[in-house]
Nucleic acid binder design. Structure first.
Length: 196
DNA sequence: CATACGATTGACT
DNA sequence: GTCAATCGTATGA
């Protein structure tokens, strides 16, 4: 079941992203990811995220700055986009202070606006499979390597985040998915299914 | 320069 | 359940 609508709210300002990734990540749940595809607006509610820090063996920043991860070391509130398995674009939001090397991976989104656009981009998939995975988020919102380092703290930005004032209710934490290191930390966060 | 691999997905047995 | 796809990045010669 998809609830279509046009979410409105405040664009989130940079200072809000200055928290450490494990603290910021659950706060991102319920916020709205907005992207612009060929002049069309596409939006959805963030329902699953993961935190990555600098002293984290599973993080791209663990071995120090490189050309790929330099955005993660930059100021917060910017996108860090990387190509996964040569196929999928994974979308992160840089967290922490300038110089830190942290980010929050957006793992799943519930589409709210621009459903026709998303369905076209994800043709053949059921609604439940549109953006329920990190690679699917990149595909649904047409975010790729060109969006790396984009500043999300402006309404004019091709990709930005809205706080629609929805309270963050029940959050489920678990170990992160698809990693072999640091499997002990519970840095995956997702919203519990809303009970109707 | 050569090469191994991955914060995944979808198709197929 | 298994496995191929596909390429930017990191690493080592």
């Amino acid at each position: 079941m998809v609830f279509e609508g046009t979410p409105s709210g405040r664009v989130i300002e940079r200072g809000w992203f200055e928290s450490d990734a494990p603290d910021l990540a659950p706060e991102l749940l319920g916020k709205v990811l907005v992207s612009r595809i060929e002049g069309r607006r596409v939006a959805g509610r963030i329902i699953e995220v993961e935190a990555y820090t600098q002293d984290d063996p599973a993080s791209h920043t663990f071995a120090g700055p490189t050309a790929r991860n330099e955005v993660m070391f930059g100021p917060p509130g910017h996108l860090y986009v990387y190509l996964s398995y040569g196929i999928h674009h994974c979308v992160n939001v840089v967290a922490g202070r300038d110089g830190d090397g942290q980010a929050v991976l957006i793992r799943a989104v519930e589409p709210l606006e621009g459903l026709d656009c998303i369905r076209r981009r994800r043709s053949g998939r059921r609604d439940a499979e549109l953006a329920n995975g990190p690679g699917k988020v990149g595909a649904s919102f047409a975010i790729d390597l060109r969006h790396n380092a984009v500043d999300v703290c402006a309404q004019s930005s091709v990709v930005h985040l809205l706080d629609i004032g929805e309270p963050v209710d029940s959050v489920i934490t678990s170990a992160r998915v698809g990693i072999s290191k640091a499997i002990d930390v519970q840095w995956r966060f997702r919203l519990a299914q809303r009970t109707p």
